[in-house]
Simulated scan of single mutants.
Amino acid sequence: MPLTPLASDFYGFEAKLRPHEQDALAALRDWLDAEVRPVVDEAWERAEFPHQLLPAFHRHPVFGMQWEETAAFENSALYRGWVALELARVDASIATYVGVQNGLAMGAIGVAGSPEQRAEWLPPMARGEVLGAFGLTEPLSGSDSAQGLRTVARRDGDDWILDGEKRWIGNATFADVVVIWAKSAEDGQVKGFLVRTDAPGWSATKIERKQSLRIVQNADIRMEGVRVPESMRLQRANSFRDTAAVLRLTRAEVAWAAVGNSIGAYEAALRYAGERVQFGKPIASHQLVQDLLARMLGNITASIAMCTRVSEMLDEGVQADEHAALAKAYATSRMRETVAWAREAMGGNGIVLDYGAARAFADAEALYSYEGTREMNTLIVGRAVTGTAAFV
């Protein structure tokens, strides 16, 4: 299936994808437009996850593409970035589901699991037979997770006993297994555990009344004496550095998702501008509306350029924390501007789901904050350029 370039890819960055990657992206785009786009507004309004989409979704080359156990074909970080963009262009919550299942949960196993754990878990997770989540953030610990984790793991013979709470854990209400990061009572280091959600002492409660990413099923998790065998401890997760290695892989893809959310809002505004008639002509012919559209397109184009280079650096093996951090901070900041301008171009209709900008406008706030706030990411960049840490 040939890939029709997005008009919002103004400088043609999609052409950097290899032909087989373009074909896979075209098939994904066609499926998203046909099957996902028609249901997301209602799902967002009801704060429900469209589980009926998952069997077909997991047949697309999206999940596990960075691991040899599950890669459907040879692919690049640039392709995986465009997948994140394409998903968020249709719905940022669906992109977040993939970010959790594929990037965080499978990523933790891929980065920190033993060869045996990778072989056991990654293939069924890629097929959607096992759904996962990633439990790092806590009610009292977000940006300070490196030092502030309160969830404790205590060794008890061949098992570990976990006690603590987690918050904002996406997919956790329906996940089969959750990667839980806890501080060891033995050595004080952060370790990772694969915890089955039917374990005694485990509970996950959906967070209600959200106004952003409403389709994502975030949960508060409570663990009271949850027993986990040593075989379910991620064997190569021995400190927070290993946790950070997982986040490093996913942070750049959040930047790509921010670009996708921007594009979704921009495309909706562009369509609206061509259809909405005021003073006897489409508002697309008004100078102020064209100015808003040009500003949106400039933000999108600059962000694609930055994300493209960051993904190329990952493929080249030279991407560092600060590179992904700058892309995430920049792309999400420009996204915030872009979705606001898209809503502005629609006037009052911009706050109604039917016109395409309202959902992107609301969802932008969550993308702006998760996987490291703008402030935390700028501190990572600041440490790199000055040689001095200023986190506290």
Rank of each mutant, 00 (worst) to 15 (best):
L140N: 14
Q319E: 14
E365Y: 00
P50H: 02
R80N: 15
F134H: 12
A305P: 06
A345M: 10
H51W: 04
A329G: 03
L149S: 07
D30V: 03
M106T: 11
E375A: 12
V246E: 02
V190C: 08
F279Y: 08
M1D: 11
R343T: 14
A77K: 06
A88Y: 04
A105F: 15
Q101G: 10
R295A: 14
G81H: 11
G128M: 03
L136H: 05
V179H: 06
A268F: 02
H51N: 05
V339I: 03
E365H: 10
V228F: 08
T151K: 00
D187K: 00
W168L: 09
V226H: 05
A153V: 04
A185C: 01
A126W: 02
V90I: 12
D156M: 00
Q22C: 09
V179Y: 00
T96V: 10
N299W: 01
A43R: 10
K210Y: 02
I380C: 00
A329L: 03
V177S: 08
R59C: 13
S369N: 08
Q278T: 09
Y355P: 10
M232R: 11
D363M: 01
M306L: 15
A364M: 01
A257D: 11
L314S: 14
L17K: 08
G148N: 08
M306A: 13
G317D: 12
E208A: 05
A331H: 01
G347S: 07
D242I: 00
R127C: 05
N171H: 12
R374V: 15
V152A: 05
I161N: 02
I94H: 04
A84W: 06
T332Y: 03
A47D: 07
L136Q: 12
G107E: 09
V289W: 01
R295M: 13
D30R: 06
A219L: 05
V83L: 03
S285N: 09
D198M: 03
F73C: 09
L122Q: 12
E45V: 10
A358K: 06
E165Y: 11
R59F: 04
L25T: 11
P139N: 06
A133M: 03
T373S: 14
F240G: 07
A331G: 06
A284F: 04
A273C: 09
L32H: 04
D9P: 05
S231A: 15
F49M: 09
S8Q: 06
G99S: 11
G274C: 02
G103N: 13
R343S: 13
G110C: 05
S262R: 01
G164M: 07
I351L: 11
R29F: 00
S8G: 02
A273D: 05
A294Y: 10
E165W: 07
G387V: 08
A92Q: 06
V228L: 00
V352P: 00
W82I: 09
F73M: 13
R374E: 14
N349K: 03
E344C: 02
S93D: 13
A133F: 00
Q235W: 07
R46E: 15
I263F: 02
G12E: 12
R127N: 09
A219N: 07
I300V: 15
A71Y: 12
M223P: 13
I169E: 14
W160V: 08
Q319R: 10
R59G: 15
I180Q: 08
R154A: 14
H20P: 10
G260F: 04
C307A: 14
T70V: 09
V152E: 11
K191P: 07
G356L: 04
A71S: 15
A324S: 15
I380W: 00
M106Q: 12
T4K: 03
